[in-house]
Amino acid sequence: MTGGPGALGAFQQYLLQRVGEQVVLGARRRLIRRMLRLPMAEYDHRRPADLVPRLTSDATMLRVALAQGLVAALGAPSPSPAP
């Protein structure tokens, strides 16, 4: 099987994205679990309509920062942004 440098770069990018997505998924799960355990009084001060977009935007920022950090640390080609 011959892959060459292009195949190695594609595999490395796949691994970086896979690890990044797993980290973000874990963070989202922990944050949602924490939100569900908040006392009801907390929702009197903060509307769920404000908390949910904040949660998703923070997870997106974590994904971008993680991808850039891994790429910089490993010297891999920059991954294309996820939609």
Rank of each mutant, 00 (worst) to 15 (best):
D44Y: 14
G75P: 04
R18Q: 13
P39L: 11
D44C: 11
R54W: 05
A7N: 14
A76F: 04
G20Q: 02
I32N: 07
L66V: 09
R33Q: 08
H45L: 15
D44K: 11
R18P: 03
V64D: 07
Q22W: 15
G6M: 07
R30S: 13
V24C: 07
G4N: 08
G4Y: 00
D50H: 07
V64G: 04
D50N: 10
R18C: 11
H45E: 12
F11Q: 04
Q12S: 06
V23Y: 07
Y14C: 07
G9I: 06
A67R: 05
L8H: 01
G4Q: 01
Q13M: 14
F11G: 05
R47T: 05
A41M: 12
P77H: 13
G4A: 03
L8N: 00
Q17A: 07
Q68K: 09
R46T: 09
T60V: 03
A27T: 10
D50F: 02
S78L: 15
T56W: 15
M35I: 05
L62I: 08
L38P: 00
A82E: 11
P5G: 01
G4W: 02
G3T: 06
D44E: 15
A72F: 08
P77S: 13
G26F: 03
P79D: 08
G4F: 00
Q17H: 08
L74G: 07
A41F: 12
G26M: 01
M40H: 11
G9R: 14
E42M: 01
R29Y: 14
A76Y: 09
Q68Y: 05
R63D: 10
L55N: 01
T60A: 09
M35G: 01
R28M: 14
Y43M: 12
H45C: 02
V52K: 03
S80L: 09
S78A: 15
G75Q: 02
P79A: 03
Q12T: 02
L51R: 06
G6S: 04
A82Q: 11
Q22N: 15
R63Q: 15
L66H: 06
R63Y: 12
Y43K: 01
L31F: 09
V23M: 13
A10R: 10
R37H: 12
D50M: 05
A73C: 03
Q13L: 07
A67W: 01
P39A: 14
S80E: 14
L16F: 05
G26K: 03
A65G: 03
L74Q: 09
A7R: 15
G69D: 13
L36C: 08
Q17Y: 02
R63T: 04
R33T: 15
G75W: 02
Y14H: 15
Q13W: 03
T2Q: 04
A76K: 00
A7F: 12
L36G: 05
T2I: 06
R30Y: 03
V19Y: 11
G4I: 00
L55H: 02
Q13S: 09
A72L: 13
